[in-house]
């Protein structure tokens, strides 16, 4: 177990290092950082002065190590636009995005797990087909369009929900549905496939033959075993949501990381973009690592196979 953990941990660190190099190239090589810092009205001398003061004229390797050194101390640099520390901006915006992602994955699970289980219990019936139909449609609806349709329906016609902002819990309902509906189909399919396989297995047949209660079979023996791969997928989808929330946040004007990223993109505020990409990648790496470890704890076969 220890060896497996260390191996996965090492891979995670390596991946984050590589991504940090990529984001560094994006923000220091693909675009001139001195130009970004100086603003539009700067003269050539101003830009040169900034280049020297911030050390942008030094070799790239040195600049990268410098950047990583500051990163390890929690210093993510300064926003070109507001001049504020990036870490402060992120800390301010992070709660909204995290809440949105949690609610979205929650919505996806609430729909996907029961639907997947029911579909698996009655394969090839009307229920199963309906579930599959929902999954296929859910996968094809662009989530920004779903967001706009929700605004039209619940915001304008029915006037049940507020259409923009992030000041209260109610504001998150529509965004969470729009974002969660994208993760739902994959989850549902996996739950269904897992349940179908588990219900076919010998130990379920034995439990049935022994007269164990149906509910116990379903939840204690069935779902618990079918849910293993679902945990990994939830971790992966959660990471996607943090990245994908940019579209939803921009539609519903939710003051989260995605909205910040979008505002920074349109004005090439590279330190902010760089930090957001890095943080979201790190969260993704940590989540998949946690899911792998959890899986291998619950299913010892995984440890041996690798």
């Amino acid at each position: 177990m220890l060896e497996f953990t260390l191996k996965r941990l090492g891979l995670g660190v390596l991946v984050i290092l590589i991504i940090s190099v990529i984001t560094f190239i994006l923000s220091h090589v693909a675009i001139d950082p001195a130009l970004g810092l100086s603003g539009d009205s700067a003269t050539a001398e101003d830009i040169e002065a900034i280049r020297q003061r911030y050390g942008f004229d030094r070799p790239l390797m040195l600049q990268y190590f410098d950047y990583m050194g500051r990163l390890l101390q929690g210093d993510l640099g300064q926003s070109y636009l507001s001049g504020r520390p990036v870490s402060e901006l992120l800390a301010e915006r992070f709660p909204d995005t995290a809440l949105l992602a949690v609610l979205s994955i929650g919505f996806a699970m609430i729909v996907a797990i029961p639907l997947g289980v029911i579909a698996a219990l009655k394969p090839n019936t009307l229920v199963d087909r309906a579930a599959l139909f929902i999954a296929v449609c859910g996968q094809a609806i662009p989530n920004f369009w779903a967001g706009l349709l929700l605004i039209l329906l619940f915001g304008i016609y029915l006037q049940w929900l507020p259409i923009s902002g992030s000041t209260s819990f109610v504001h998150f309902i529509m965004p969470a549905i729009a974002l969660g509906s994208y993760a739902m189909p994959a989850l549902m399919r996996l739950v269904r496939a897992g349940m179908v396989e588990v219900l076919r297995s010998d130990y379920i047949r034995t439990a049935r033959a022994m007269g164990v209660r149906r509910r116990t079979i379903l939840f204690k023996y069935g779902l618990r075993n079918a849910i293993l791969p679902v945990i990994s997928l939830i971790a992966v989808q959660f990471g996607f949501m943090l990245g994908g929330s940019i579209v939803i946040e921009s539609i519903f004007a939710i003051n989260g990381i995605g909205y910040l990223a979008w505002q920074s993109m349109s004005r090439a505020d590279m330190p902010v973009i760089q930090a957001i990409v890095l943080i979201i990648s790190m969260i993704y790496v940590v989540l998949t690592l946690a899911a792998d470890l959890l899986n291998s704890l619950m299913d010892p076969r995984i440890r041996i196979n690798r």
Binding site: I16, I19, F240, G243, G244, A261, I273, V277, Y284
Partner: peptide, 8 residues
């Protein structure tokens, strides 16, 4: 896989 596609 670890990089957020749409952000990149």
């Amino acid at each position: 896989l670890s990089m957020p596609i749409i952000l990149i």
